[in-house]
Design a binder for these strands. Structure first.
Lengths: 366, 366
DNA sequence: CTCACTAGCTAATGCGTATTAATCATGCGC
DNA sequence: GCGCATGATTAATACGCATTAGCTAGTGAG
């Protein structure tokens, strides 16, 4: 309040002839009585490849210290032809106001792994109206200023992505994306995880299991169904078309009557997919309650993912989506691509999460 | 699963002779049939100072677009001392695992305002152990790649900051920070906001009010106390030392007995500061409940900030910390500094938030 | 017809560092 | 004493862009 910020105190000696007032390698060289090249070699520790007398090294290091030399990152990166920057592009704002849809958990992993690998992150936002070079279809082209770019969310326009990939620009998409061939991606292994959930139920003795899913063609949805069916198959259970209840609007289509119909038909376990909205699971949960039933006594419930983190309810059986780990994996893959290496395994395993919502099937007639 | 990602399809020609495969101005120039200098002039919009034929400009722009040209930030910065990037540096992870301590709300504003001002954001992570250029004094020096840098959290080492400021590098600290003079910052105006809360209570008729605060020397804490005392003073209320209850451990120090002692002494309203941990407020809330009291009937409660967003409890009187606006203000200040202008007003107002936890003081004896 | 002058463009240079080829003693074997 | 490998250092150059001092052709004035 009483300290209106000011700047540029006298502090250090103004300049030598360079713009910044900060010492350059040339000044260090002068002070140490050597050439700029020698300074560079010593400070970069390249003394094993190009030998420098120990005494000279000492002088250089001392000169650098007394002058307070710090390398200019811009020059360093220019000379090295590497920015050490990875782009992060999200078509919607990277930090959305609605935390539910946030990429936050991914970013935790992205940031951490990027730091680990020695990269900084450049944030690009597709939605930013106004501002730097935004707007037109070339907006995506901006990401080229980084060494490579990570794409979040499925809204990145295919054509632009295609262009980047074709140009050989390192790109990794977070979330499976097969329709653009040549595009690298990392994603959660929903298939294996879903299969595992079914296996768990089957091991408990369930013989008829139904999957409730939304009417969506997203890989995240179809993968879960694949895994579910695969799980049934491997357990020797019937995997007919009526094992999957698919509806565009679970909230209204999934009535208590439908539920009772299943139970009467011998179904003892229900599995819901988890999506952005969580509609399938929420509808299932609500309908079970409405029907006066409760898990795991009357039936077993599982969710192919993590239920929305509501109040302190009992944990639901399912699997966790390792978002942080996904972010890290994406960065690792991107770094590999930047280095010209081959992309590795794109799938990240989802750990099974035991819960209190499943149990053995109820005995037919108490 | 069946699509192991591959890369580098034949697509486009790999490169011209530059190391990165990314097009340079030289390539744009060749394609447009002009010189590199012309490309630079056109793309920088310098066509008012050095006239370029409209037709030539068109050709250059088109060539740049078809090649997907994007300027190299390092080269830009090296040559012109600016590259339209702002750094964001947090000594701890920018995206912490503990969401409570998150800078997220700030970043929303930072991202938005940066886009508005035409800047890209670079996330520098200081927390990286291992990896490139971590550790030493060089860690902070990386931020010089950007035109200026925003610092989050009070863990940024003072010596390094000092150095940046002395070198004339534009720096803005998010959160008040006076001990480093010359360092610009933006912060919430806790003083005014706290005063306003007190004024609100006084207007309702409260004559004895006590502040519960932690034993902390952070500006955020002392500012609140200042504002609190100022508020008492302006309302003509006693602002003696016993108006402030300061303890290192509110959870254990704030017992129901202490609370009843206050009430017996005529205290009718309690105000808690809000901190990272929220310890003061949580302790107060719990103790009031333990004592079998409830607000606003038995006494009035207010918090100097926003209580941790718990379950659907009734809103507590206090003020909101405009984190998003703070982030935006910080960016605006940083942009001003980069432009060589003077830093403006560092304080952002916190809007008063009416709630259901205060009311008129209870009548002395029912 | 020449000169000054302008519009339109380019050659050249610098930014600060990393890297490589070249230089220069120096000692060693013969 | 003459090459010759070796060790220590430096000159030179590239990195990609911005900037400035020219250079050239054309135009109107004198």
């Amino acid at each position: 309040m009483e300290t209106p910020p000011q700047r540029q105190r006298p502090g250090r000696a103004p300049a030598q002839g360079n713009r910044t007032g900060r010492p350059r390698q040339a000044e260090v060289a002068r002070l140490a009585g050597v050439s700029q090249a020698t300074v560079s070699l010593v400070l970069a520790g390249r003394t094993d490849k190009v030998s420098i007398a120990p005494e000279t090294q000492r002088r250089v290091l001392e000169a650098a210290r007394t002058l307070g030399y710090v390398p200019d990152p811009a020059a360093r990166r220019l000379a090295a032809a590497r920015n050490n920057m990875l782009g992060v592009f999200s078509f919607t704002a990277t930090f959305p106001t609605d935390v539910r849809h946030s990429y936050y958990p991914f970013l935790v992993g992205v940031e951490c792994e990027a730091a680990e690998q020695g990269y900084d992150l450049v944030l690009f936002t597709g939605s930013s109206t106004g501002g730097a070079g935004s707007g037109g279809p070339e907006a995506l082209s901006r990401v080229r200023l980084a060494d490579g770019c990570l794409f979040l969310g499925r809204h990145a326009p295919a054509a632009e992505l295609r262009r980047l990939v074709d140009d050989g620009f390192p790109v990794v998409h977070l979330g499976r994306r097969d329709e653009l061939d040549g595009l690298s991606w990392v994603g959660a292994d929903y298939i294996s995880a879903s299969r595992e959930v079914v296996a768990h139920l089957a091991a408990l003795g369930h013989r008829k299991i139904v999957l409730v899913r939304e009417d969506d063609e997203a890989p995240a949805s179809t993968d879960r169904e694949h895994g579910f069916l695969k799980g049934l198959e491997e357990a020797g259970l019937p995997a007919g078309p009526d094992a999957v209840f698919r509806t565009a609007d679970p909230a209204s289509a999934l009535t208590p009557d439908v539920l009772r119909g299943w139970l009467d038909a011998g179904v003892t376990a229900l599995v819901a997919e988890e999506t952005d909205t969580g509609a399938a699971w929420l509808a299932l949960e609500r309908t079970v309650a409405e029907a006066g039933l409760s898990a795991p006594d009357d039936l077993s419930l599982a969710v192919l993912g993590s239920p929305p983190p509501e109040r302190d309810s009992a944990p639901v059986t399912g699997f966790d989506i390792p978002r942080t780990e996904l972010g890290a994996a994406a960065v690792r893959m991107l770094v590999a691509l930047v280095a010209g290496e081959e992309a590795q395994e794109p799938l990240v395993a989802c750990p099974f999460r035991p819960g209190a919502s499943v149990g053995p099937p109820p005995t037919p007639a108490g």
